[in-house]
């Protein structure tokens, strides 16, 4: 119980951000026309690559072999997610634009 209380106290800011972000996410996303479902899913997927920041911090301060190896893998994977995700999304949306003409 004490663990839980101290956890809730120590992480108050982060918990506030998380709870409010959930509502923000629902508000921002709802009422999307189904035409955009696939590109939006892909775009959101690219944003989930934000773990790349974690990868940068890890490799940035890596000292042990484990940190170097796993950190590099994490950073590479996250970059694939980010770069691939945004490019794929752009490709899909590019077609939507073309057809509007």
């Amino acid at each position: 119980m004490e663990n839980v209380l101290s956890f809730l106290t120590a992480n108050k800011d982060a918990i506030f951000i998380i709870v409010l972000s959930v509502f923000l996410g629902f508000e921002v996303i709802s009422n999307v026309p189904s035409v955009l479902h696939t590109p939006l899913m892909s775009g959101a997927n690219a944003i989930s690559g934000v773990i790349i920041i974690g990868g940068i911090i890890l490799v940035g301060h890596a000292t042990t072999t484990l940190e170097w190896v796993l950190g590099s893998v994490a950073l590479f994977m996250a970059t694939l997610n980010v770069a691939g995700g945004f490019v794929v999304t752009d490709r899909m949306l590019e077609m939507f634009k073309k057809k509007k003409k």
């Binding site: 982060a14 951000i17 998380i18 972000s21 959930v22 509502f23 923000l24 996410g25 629902f26 921002v28 996303i29 709802s30 479902h37 939006l40 899913m41 959101a44 997927n45 944003i47 989930s48 934000v50 773990i51 920041i53 974690g54």
Partner: peptide
């Protein structure tokens, strides 16, 4: 904050979808 908000946004978006 960038990671928390970005991640949760995607979590909420994926859930709605």
């Amino acid at each position: 904050e960038a990671m928390i908000l970005g991640g949760i946004l995607v979590g909420a978006a994926g859930t709605i979808l």
